[in-house]
């Protein structure tokens, strides 16, 4: 069972709230201080990705964040995006290539999603992007050691 469960409408303004909650719960769960920045950034990226997918497909369903403590602090961020948008963990885009390939001055949302995924992959050792257990959508699952 999750220790803390949070749901928010897919709006960028709420991503910061999710980050703040995640860091507070992680600290309480015993995640080391020096790892909290990583938790903050990773949860933010996972939530931004979910918000971007919901906006892309005009989905009004809530983004779900579940946090559980135990031997490891685990966070699961779940969206309702269509299955075909599921990123393959083996094909993480290279941000430098994304930059070179984009021809607009300010990168399109798809580039931002790719860059977010590259950042997540580089940041979190234990990261999985899996289909949701309860219907359409994907879950980004991450965990960190606790003291």
């Amino acid at each position: 069972m999750p220790t803390v469960r949070l749901e928010f409408s897919p709006a960028p303004a709420h991503v910061r709230t999710a980050r703040l909650v995640a860091v507070a719960v992680a600290r309480r769960a015993g995640v080391a201080e020096e790892v909290l920045d990583e938790v903050r950034l990773a949860v933010g990226e996972a939530c931004s990705r979910a918000v971007a997918l919901h906006q892309l497909y005009q989905l009004s369903e809530l983004v779900e964040v579940e946090m559980a403590d135990g031997a490891r602090f685990t966070v699961r961020v779940s969206d309702r995006g269509p299955a075909e948008t599921r990123p393959e963990t083996g094909s993480v885009p290279d941000p430098v290539e994304l930059v070179a390939d984009s021809d607009t001055s300010f990168p399109a949302p798809s580039v931002a999603v790719g860059m977010g995924l590259a950042l997540l992959t580089g940041l979190v050792d234990d990261l999985q992007v899996v289909p949701r257990r309860d219907g359409a959508g994907t879950s980004v699952r991450m965990s960190w050691p606790t003291a």
Binding site: R40, G44, P95, V99, S105, F106, V111, M115, L119
Partner: peptide, 17 residues
């Protein structure tokens, strides 16, 4: 205090421009 991939994207946009 905090920078995410969206922020990186904007900075990249500035550089390209």
């Amino acid at each position: 205090e905090f920078l995410d991939s969206t922020g990186l994207g904007v900075l990249v946009g500035g550089l390209k421009r």
